[in-house]
Design a binder for these strands. Structure first.
Lengths: 343, 343
DNA sequence: GTTAGCACTCGACGTTTTCGACTGCTAATT
DNA sequence: AATTAGCAGTCGAAAACGTCGAGTGCTAAC
């Protein structure tokens, strides 16, 4: 016979599960019926009273059942939830990803879309950080009279570009030489190692080209700098609305917050992975007004050569199936890491 | 004194404008008050009865005012609406764009975000088509043991990449030579000219490299092919929700339709520019279930060297400020064309 | 620590009523 | 023929009202 305390947790779990499932406050009677707790509703009521006092559940109004509070979800996530293993179909879907790994960007998009589908929620993924990447190759291509394109290839396979306006017309070969010089001198340099040695670079070409070299080298710096600002790819925003009109009118502000990538980036950045390789923020824990009714589940994925990995995750209503979501996110992160490190 | 028919159009205009503004069905009395039609409500009622018979307006229920039908909006757009010139602030905002023109992709994103802000609606932009672009340069860079990155630079400044797995290990220099060969042979070739002369290409390198050349050339073909599938960048989805809970519960399906880029692409493709350089689809005209209550305003922009331009536009509720939206879209298209052709 | 019993609360929901915004029609007017 | 005033009639929105029942907390007994 389980002691009082463990049963209370059982009750909390039951409440969370029922509420996630039915979207309605759950009462003592329904509870004993659906789960086979072998006690009477009255007993459950006592437990519920206690849980309420502990701030784990709350009643929307007097004559209604209880719903979990953010704290309740938190406890649930930390101590009670069971990770639901992926279904066969879900595994398969992921494996198809590996075959799409031709274009870096495209693969991230695929990944995030898949994650959105699997979880039926909004999925986000952070671009891998430049920081750990090394410069592999630099190219300068003439586009117009005084327009050129500076192209930077990183060891992660990411390609960055920037258009520059040259101070003076230049020949195609000259640009190419400049590219070669840059490639040589910066090869294998970490992308986060700034500033780049401008003087050395400039004096490495004959005087006539120095002005052009300066412009190009500046562009390189600029690319490397902007690479630190990470970006987010998102998918499945429609799921926000489809979630049963559940988030109701709050959906507008949520969408805004999501479009405002900065907010989300800061949040993801703050989130520390726990020993399970996951991090979860629930409701107010997001410390963001418009995300009060949402929860974020995230995990780090390794972007090739280790380095501080970027994150991926999902955003959904606090009332979500944490078990399923957490396992999907974790599996996705692992799988992606594997693909990336193979490539 | 205007004749009966012109007044009827005036009435239609007044109804559209009021309805757009107030979001409420508008009645005869309110109409004469707010606009200075110098007749009595009764007269207006007669006109309204006629307009209703013509299918231009409808009454949601007996004791309510009238709202425009899709047909009503259509007439309004075609014949009555006045293009509202941009404000100074809006012009300025656009001019800032020009300064961001460093990265092709980034600029498109900026553009679409700006358009979303200006119109307070969802903005979309199609990637410029490859078709008119010419191949400027091709690069092959070694990434891993047997992994290489094929990079294609087009005359529009767009950069495409693809990762390939080599059949056998290759040296960095060899890959570079392959890149050079490809660059030489395909230089200035239109990106839409397929297939590329594989045989010539392959036989242009020494036998030991032929297998690798084949792999790389295939990747090039693949890039060129996928370039025909155009993509869409979107911004301002939050505006859908913010529009006063106006589209109500329909917002879910709309978001879905938007995420499903194919639908939108087909639609944009079908839309023919009128003499004003704009095309508008209203309600059912979109011939798409979930877009029944939305309208699409689009314009073509020239992507550098003429060629069939891609489109940009906005998606919003049928009840939108067509005047403002149309002018914003048109101005944006023109401005973007200018920037692109300059660069 | 459990449980049955019970009085009590309060929102959800269906019904009824009131209110007023509009309309369409008719008949008079220009 | 077009316009207008006047008026009866319609019908939805909002408020007021009552009923119902799910769910609670408490007490007293086990």
């Amino acid at each position: 016979m389980p002691d009082t305390n463990t049963r209370r947790l059982q009750v909390l779990r039951a409440i969370v599960e029922d509420y996630v499932h039915t979207r309605e406050p759950v009462g003592s009677k329904a509870l004993v019926e659906r789960h086979n707790l072998e006690v009477s509703p009255a007993t459950i009521r006592n437990d519920m009273a206690q849980l309420e006092e502990d701030g784990l559940i709350a009643a929307p109004h007097t004559s209604a059942g209880r719903i979990p509070t953010d704290l309740g979800y938190r406890l649930f996530v930390d101590r009670i939830s069971e990770v639901r293993p992926l279904t066969r179909a879900e595994r398969r879907a992921m494996e198809i990803l590996a075959e799409t790994s031709d274009d870096h960007e495209a693969m991230l998009e695929q990944t995030v879309r898949l994650l959105a589908m699997l979880t039926n929620q909004v999925a986000v993924i952070q671009h891998p950080q430049h920081s750990s990447a090394k410069i592999r190759h630099i190219d300068v291509v003439l586009l117009g009279a005084q327009k050129a394109l500076v192209i930077l290839i990183l060891s992660t396979g990411k390609v960055e570009q920037r258009m520059v306006t040259l101070a003076e017309p230049a020949a195609e070969e000259d640009l190419h030489r400049i590219g070669q010089k840059l490639s040589e001198q910066l090869h294998n340099r970490s992308a986060s190692a700034l500033p780049i040695p401008m003087d050395t670079l400039i004096s490495s070409v004959e005087p006539a080209l120095r002005a052009t070299m300066a412009v190009v080298a500046n562009a390189v710096t600029s690319i490397l700098e902007s690479g630190r600002v990470d970006r987010i790819i998102m998918a499945g925003t429609a799921n926000l609305a489809r979630s049963g009109g559940d988030l109701g009118p709050a959906i507008g502000p949520i969408l805004e917050a999501l479009e405002e990538q900065v907010v989300l980036l800061r949040l993801l950045h703050e989130m520390q992975q726990d020993q399970r390789g996951l991090s979860v923020r629930i409701g107010q824990e997001t410390s963001h007004e418009s995300l009060q009714e949402t929860a974020v589940v995230a995990a780090e994925y390794a972007s090739g050569e280790s380095g501080r990995g970027a994150k991926l995750g999902v955003v959904g209503p606090t009332r979500m199936d944490y078990g399923a979501t957490m396992s999907a996110v974790r599996a996705m992160a692992r799988y992606l890491s594997r693909i990336l490190s193979e490539g």
